[in-house]
């Protein structure tokens, strides 16, 4: 269980996360959605102790993330940020192997090797395994980083827009994989998603943020409605239903086809 109480982050006079309290029970996929600058990434970074908070407290399975030893938390919780640059030249395999660092401190065991191989296969990276990551396409690199986090094998996985840079096939496959991590391996996923429709189909719960605060919290069906979309994104979005789930047709806004029918 992840518990946040009164979490606040300020940059000078700007409060980017304003006293957020939230409880995420173990298991399932929780999607963080909201407009740019709503504070989703900052909140996620604070849960993953990449960013110190100014006020409040975050507990993961009862452990205070700002106090607990880093290597203890690293076996429980992993986080993947949006921009991922690596300062040294690594191959895909070397990068993925780093995911085992909390478990083996750099000395890989046979079990570590198995995890690495599984993760590489899962993300269809076998043919690039020996390639330096700076020679991959954006999508391939993104998958390599997801493989690293997967390899870390933690109960809690925090992902900041992992579908960025992925094409349709890889985006849907990756999201499917993330869903399977929750369903089959009972991991707790907290994921920042840009595309509300991925949240609609794959998340169990949608938490919407705006101006540093949580403005909506519920199942996809409760949150992805015309009125609440308008409130969260300041945009009139036509919401349809497909395969028993809401679909926000935001991509059609402004198109002559949408307006031409009136």
């Amino acid at each position: 269980m992840i518990e946040l109480s009164g979490v606040t982050k300020r940059y000078g006079p700007n409060t980017v996360v304003n006293s957020v309290s939230l409880t995420i029970p173990g298991g399932g996929v929780t999607a963080l959605v909201g407009p740019n600058g709503a504070g989703k990434s900052s909140l996620l970074s604070m849960i993953g102790r990449l960013l110190p908070m100014d006020e409040g407290e975050i507990r993961v399975d009862g452990l205070d993330v700002s106090r607990i030893a880093g290597d203890v938390l690293a076996k429980k919780l992993s986080i993947l940020r949006q921009e991922n640059q690596v300062a040294v030249r690594l191959t895909v395999k070397e990068l993925v192997e780093f995911g085992r660092f909390p478990h083996s401190r750099g000395r890989l065991t046979a079990e570590d090797g198995r995890h690495v191989e599984e993760a590489i296969d899962f993300l269809e990276l076998a043919e690039f395994a020996g390639r330096p990551i700076d020679r991959l396409s954006g999508g391939q690199r993104q998958r390599a980083f997801i493989a690293m986090v997967l390899c870390q094998d933690t109960d809690y996985v925090l992902l900041d827009e992992p579908l960025n840079n992925l094409d349709m096939r890889h985006a849907s496959q990756t999201m499917g994989l993330i869903r399977r991590l929750a369903t089959e391996l009972n991991k707790t996923i907290v994921i920042v998603l840009h595309d509300i429709n991925f949240a609609s189909y794959h998340a169990d719960r949608v938490v919407a943020m705006k101006d540093g605060a949580i403005v909506a919290d519920g199942t996809p069906r409760e949150i992805i409605t015309g009125p609440s979309m308008a409130e969260i994104f300041d945009l009139e979005v036509p919401v349809h239903s497909y395969a028993d789930r809401p679909v926000a047709a935001y991509f059609a806004i402004g198109s002559r086809h949408l307006h031409g029918q009136d």
Binding site: G48, R49, L50, A69, G70, D71, V72, L73, A74, K75, S78, I79, L80, R81, N84, Q85, V86, A87, V88, L90, L95, F98, G99, F101, P102, V149, Q152
Partner: peptide, 14 residues
């Protein structure tokens, strides 16, 4: 060496 945020994620007290 692979970067601050990755190191913290991997449990290093950076």
């Amino acid at each position: 060496a692979i970067g601050r945020e990755h190191a913290i994620n991997l449990g290093v007290n950076h």
